[in-house]
Nucleic acid binder design. Structure first.
Length: 214
DNA sequence: ACCCAGGGTCATA
DNA sequence: TATGACCATGGG
């Protein structure tokens, strides 16, 4: 029986061969990436793109501007992303954190553990959002676990529903190479796989990694 | 008409 | 700790 480690690495290789490099996260600045991480909470990325475009057109894609806008104005701009009232507040909270902590977060000497705990203290930033920001905005090796990741591992019998976020995160971090590139690509590839509809319906035996099988 | 999407918080038991 | 309600849009 192959080890979990070799299995996770094989999955990575197969995903990469199937979909190619994703070069995540889409976004030109750290703040744009962080904003996207909040806006995409339980939301289709297409809707997030519309909201981000609105922010860009209004020159509002900056933490300072996020704070200078009223919550209702901000909510109007991000309206297409859904949950706009709560997300407007969450973006404010994150922007407040950002102005104080983002420089520290950029410096490689600040401990990841502290940074993560710090981000998690922001209301509206949960584990996945925090890890997405750490990994893709600040280039920290903090593996991101999302609903697709759970489904993926469950479908291959590596975990069950009882596994916590932290446990799944650790499973990856203990078993894949200590490579920022691989952390970024692995999560991106899992999401792309999750979003990919089956090309071979209804037969479905050509699915990448048997994703769409039962 | 229904279901889901790159979650998170809060109230309740 | 564990469930459930709630947040809300747009595409399938």
């Amino acid at each position: 029986m192959p080890s979990v480690r070799s299995t996770l690495i094989r999955f990575y290789d197969e995903l990469l061969a199937e979909f190619g490099q994703q070069h995540w996260w889409p976004g030109d600045t750290r703040w744009e990436i962080a904003t996207g991480a909040v806006l995409t909470q339980n939301t289709n990325w297409r809707n997030v793109e519309k909201a981000i475009e609105n922010l860009k057109v209004d020159n509002a894609l900056l933490p300072q501007r996020t704070l200078s806008l009223s919550v209702t104005d901000l909510a109007n701009l991000i309206q297409p992303s859904g949950f706009f009232n709560v997300k407007a507040k969450r973006l404010r909270n994150l922007a407040t954190w950002w102005l104080v902590n983002s420089e520290l977060a950029e410096s490689a000497s600040s401990p990841l553990k502290n940074l993560r705990a710090d981000l998690l203290s922001v209301n509206g930033v949960g584990e996945e959002t925090a890890d997405s920001i750490l990994l893709y905005a600040f280039d920290r090796r903090s593996f991101v676990v999302d609903a697709y990741t759970r489904r993926f591992l469950q479908r291959h019998g590596l975990i069950d529903q009882s596994w916590t976020y932290q446990r799944i995160k650790s499973l990856f971090e203990k078993n894949i190479p200590d490579s920022l590139e691989i952390y970024k690509e692995y999560h991106a590839l899992i999401v792309i796989l999750g979003k990919t509809s089956c090309r071979t319906k209804p037969a479905c035996d050509q699915c990448p990694l048997r994703w769409h099988l039962q």
